[in-house]
Design a protein around this nucleic acid. Sequence first.
DNA 1: TGTATACTCTACTATTATGATAGAGATTAT
DNA 2: ATAATCTCTATCATAATAGTAGAGTATACA
Lengths: 146, 146
Amino acid sequence: MRITYKGDYALKTILGLALHYGNSPTTINDLARRADIPTKFLEQILLDLKRGGFVESRRGKIGGYLLARAPSQIKLGEVIRFVDGPVEPIACAGKKYSGCNDVYKCVFRKIWQDVSLATSKIIDNITFEELAKNIKDKGPVYTYQI
Amino acid sequence: MRITYKGDYALKTILGLALHYGNSPTTINDLARRADIPTKFLEQILLDLKRGGFVESRRGKIGGYLLARAPSQIKLGEVIRFVDGPVEPIACAGKKYSGCNDVYKCVFRKIWQDVSLATSKIIDNITFEELAKNIKDKGPVYTYQI
DNA sequence: TGTATACTCTACTATTATGATAGAGATTAT
DNA sequence: ATAATCTCTATCATAATAGTAGAGTATACA
Ligand code: FES
Ligand code: FES
């Protein structure tokens, strides 16, 4: 797994929205400014996240973005997988693969699968509700640093 | 962490040499053919591995490559880190980093550090001796499939 | 109904990493 | 000598990444 800037930005954006959950929509500009993301890049990322069912949007005045689900229902792993792809460190760790000469004898495959599993256990075990709580616990958030 | 072809090839090559440990040198061509690696690419990789202290070479006739250390003294993690770089999924998981606006408040950093640690525990806990043993246990190896 | 605000969509671009390939040169056993 | 083998530097093609640009669409509200 490699987290790209796009993935990093996506996570920070979802977290930004999680911190606003229940309130009015947040504009792309707000999200971009607060997490220090290039606005036009974030536009594309948000469209992706919308297609992925993570966020909703409102157009026009007082428009912006909202989470499509409660923060407690969005796991870190879901988002990162959607944006940056599978977490395995090499393609052959995946289920259907036949690259190796004899994949059944390959001693590395199991190792990469172990790594994938260990990674999944971490990222699929934390929701944006918990992340948001962590942030809030760190003190009053005026201009929160995501 | 993402395992590149170069990293994958390096691991397979070291394993190939581990299976030959104690015997005469193995040529680049042999190693390339047996693990299905482009010869000229493997040349470069082996030069790297040599600089990294993993292998030794003999030039001229009956030349080739040998492991510089016993297979039991070479961990998977060492090789992959040398060839493909640090295992962390994002740079900010590293010790010295100041990219985030407020890195001390960043809730993601700990997660990526957890992932790095879990990965390290796996790859730093297996040597090429064990990998070679696994291969040998799978039956007689005529043309071994790495 | 006009207009400002804000999302939507497609295309384009620059940079870098990856995965090689090419070829001349150096060393060594026989 | 010479054949086999490693050594070194340069070059190249492709794809992914990280953006940028700009025209278009929807909505609130005066
Ligand atoms: S199946 Fe991936 S290295 Fe063998
Ligand atoms: S320090 Fe890496 S996402 Fe914050």
